[in-house]
Amino acid sequence: MPVFHTKTIESILEPVAQQVSRLVILHEEAEDGNAMPDLEKPVFGVSRAVQNLVKVGRETIQSSDDAILRQDMPAALQRVEQAARHLEEASGMLKADPFSQPARKKLIEGSRGILQGTSSLLLCFDESEVRKIISECKRVLDYLAVAEVVDSLEDLVRFVKDLSPCLSKVSREVDGRQKELTHQVHRDILIRCLEEVKTLTPILICSMKIYIQIHAQGGKGGEEAGMNRDYLAQRMTDELNEIIRVLQLTTYDEDEWD
């Protein structure tokens, strides 16, 4: 079962996660341990990378108009900074005593903290990217909501002109997102829903045209045509709502996996 829900996050963190796990096991198996080498240089490397991440993170916070990102990201940055301090302390303690057990514990704690903090930060960023896709999906939902008040061919042309670029964007972004996910079930749902939306779009437009024509001629069947149009708009709405729901999933349902 994948631990990280996107391929990008997985490719960045999975190798480090495995190495940290191995370090913990080695530490537990060799309880007394050999003398630790001088870790000043690699710890300095981490501290410098953390400083850069904090700088980039703060710039991201300041330039973002996503209130949730602005609220959540500082905590993740603090976590990474704190973990880097633990590593620096561990390095200092090991320099004084290469066999120090508290220093080794601090080293493991710091490494885990870096991993967890970076993971939180990437998750914050990823969720913000997902919210951008969701806001595009909601724009399409807003258009679908007005399908029932379109009662002239002129309005229908306008409707199609407005809806098409939005739908193309949603299609492109949701398709890109599904390719990014590590969870196959979520990928499959997004692919299926997107295909449904694509299939239903021309059918909905056709049903709207039929309704407008019947309405204009004052003929029979107007009510049925309206109901058919509403049914199709509702089906598209349901599919888009399912896309929105699945886009927000980051944890794995064990039963679903079984």
């Binding site: 480090v16 370090l23 991201t60």
Partner: peptide, 29 residues
């Protein structure tokens, strides 16, 4: 994008640190 690059750098630096710290322990196990 810059966040991802910065996170990659942290991962690489942490990886180097953990490898260095593991090396001494591995000799014992």
């Amino acid at each position: 994008e810059m966040i991802l690059e910065a996170a990659k750098s942290i991962a690489a630096a942490t990886s180097a640190l953990v490898k260095a710290a593991s090396a001494a322990q591995r000799e014992l196990v």
